[in-house]
Design a protein around this nucleic acid. Structure first.
Length: 502
DNA sequence: AAAAAAC
């Protein structure tokens, strides 16, 4: 295919954008070297649009879904613009921050920072990240030593501001990443407080999945003659994603998800999958169920400690975990490249969240599967989704799905749980020396029915992450008992399972 | 109806 087609369509513009390379932006050799090492040569459409504009110092209003390469789109030109500060002429530690990047979630902050650090690797620019849920002291130390680029979630940043461990009076560039999400989460007052600490003379980049009236109001308050950059049409699901819904009877969703996962494995498709669940409790429960079915699964949600959340993500990225069972903490922002498959165990309450969830797959031209299971009562949610994406999602049946055995067991969850405890104890005692705590080496046990050829890959926890995962009882307590709003429950209730609501 | 985020 050539790029000299006559039709001057948007798709064509994207193609032309893809035809150029990073060299053509005039980026510094140190940045290009880092990009080459990462294996990046061609900018994505949003990078091709954003980089020149940011380099010119203009404000940007960017509509970009996750997975479009948005982070590099702002990080690369920001690094380039800050380069004169590097090379020994770094700013004094008293008021060093020159670029501030704000994100709604801790994971996103960490990932943006990770990207920045990689792109700036061969420069003298210093960067760090601050977010809540972890010890403040190491963050304070890093801030005191001085950084040019700071990535942060709003709450913890204000904490540091209050403690006077950071001075924002020299910030020249501000990035509001996933701004719609930040507004959704009630960060507006925090954002206003932070922005009021910054010089009025600065460059501001705002990225958002949608341009809602609230976002437009935010932009008109804090941006100056912004250049609008839009890549994917907002509210429209990616064309490369094959969406399918499966209607199942009440109480069969768990079995259906197990079936889908095993079927994919049987077909030789990648096992890596994010499974979305609406509630934190349901999230932990489904992860436990998948593990009992021999699937390497782990839950990630807001009641997990920050350490657990990071370990889980790390395990997912290095392949120790196949199924990441997540609440909407993972719907936006989490930078997990090339997800082959997303499954909705619950249809999301809001149709917009559906778009964000399935936006985890089919990125940058790759294809992906977005599968959803739903029960008859969820029909209305599905209608809302189809209305938003302006498309009907094909219904399909689960090939060879026999829910009866699974459902029969489902009706006796207590007994099933007890049986799995016994199975676990036996499995552990055969393979690993048992300690007094009855949990072998302390590693998270994974059940792998030997008669199931699809799940016969050996379980190899990585030294630093999965091996440090707490035993399931502790995880269950952490999942249910932590957090400001989590109900306090007696230990027996936690270990025996939480009674289903309503 | 839920989740997320500062202590």
């Amino acid at each position: 295919m050539t790029t000299t087609s006559q039709a001057d369509t948007a798709a064509n513009a994207d193609q032309n954008a893809n035809a150029i390379t990073f060299d053509s932006f005039g980026l510094d050799a140190r940045i290009l070297r880092a990009l080459t090492e990462q294996g990046y040569t061609k900018p994505t459409p949003i990078q091709a649009q954003a980089i020149p504009v940011v380099l010119l110092g203009k404000d940007v209003m960017g509509a970009a879904q996750t997975g479009t390469g948005k982070t590099a789109g702002f990080a690369l030109p920001i690094i380039q613009r800050l380069l004169p500060l590097a090379n020994g002429s770094a700013s004094p530690a008293r008021h060093p921050v020159r670029a501030l990047m704000l994100t709604p979630t801790r994971e996103l902050a960490d990932q943006v920072y990770d990207n920045v650090a990689r792109y700036a690797k061969h420069t003298d620019l210093r960067s760090t990240v601050v977010f809540g849920g972890v010890d403040m002291n190491p963050q304070t130390d890093a801030l005191r030593r001085g950084v040019e680029i700071l990535v942060a979630t709003p709450g913890r940043l204000l904490d540091h501001v209050q403690q006077k461990s950071v001075n924002l009076s020299q910030v020249q560039m501000l990035v509001l990443d996933e701004a719609d999400r930040m507004l959704d989460m009630g960060f507006l007052p925090d954002l206003q407080r932070i922005i009021n600490l910054l010089p009025a003379q600065r460059q501001t980049l705002l990225f958002s999945a949608t341009f809602s009236p609230e976002i437009k109001r935010l932009a008109s308050s804090y941006l100056t003659q912004p250049v609008t950059i839009e890549v994917a049409r907002s509210n429209s699901a990616n064309e490369n994603v094959r969406q399918t819904v499966y209607q199942v009877e009440d109480g069969q969703k768990q079995a259906a998800v197990v079936h889908l996962l095993k079927q994919r494995a049987a077909q030789g498709l990648s096992r890596q999958c994010i499974v979305f669940v609406n509630s934190k409790i349901g999230c932990s429960r489904l992860a436990r169920h998948l593990e009992r079915e021999g699937i390497n699964a782990a839950a990630i949600h807001g009641d997990k400690t920050q350490t657990e959340r990071m370990q889980t993500l790390e395990g997912f990225k290095n392949g120790t975990i196949d199924a990441l069972v997540a609440t909407d903490v993972a719907a936006r922002g989490l930078d997990i490249p090339d997800m082959p498959c997303v499954i909705n165990f619950d249809l999301p309450f809001s149709a917009e969240d559906y778009v964000h969830r399935i936006g985890r797959t089919g990125r940058a031209g790759a294809s992906g599967d977005a599968l959803s299971v739903f029960q008859p009562g969820d029909e209305r949610l599905l209608v809302d989704i189809e209305k938003l994406i302006k498309r009907s999602i094909p219904r399909a049946t689960l090939d060879g799905f026999d829910p009866t055995g699974e459902r029969a067991r489902g009706e006796d969850a207590e007994r099933r749980r007890a049986r799995s405890e016994v199975r676990r104890a036996r499995g552990e005692s055969e393979e690993r020396p048992r300690r007094k705590d009855g949990n072998g080496s302390g590693q998270r046990p994974v059940f792998r029915p030997s008669d199931d050829p699809f799940f016969s890959r050996p379980y190899e926890p990585s030294a630093g992450s999965a091996a440090a995962t707490p035993k399931p009882e502790e995880a269950a307590i952490a999942a249910l008992g932590r957090g400001r709003t989590a109900p306090k429950r007696p230990l027996a209730a936690l270990l025996g399972g939480v009674p289903r609501k309503s």
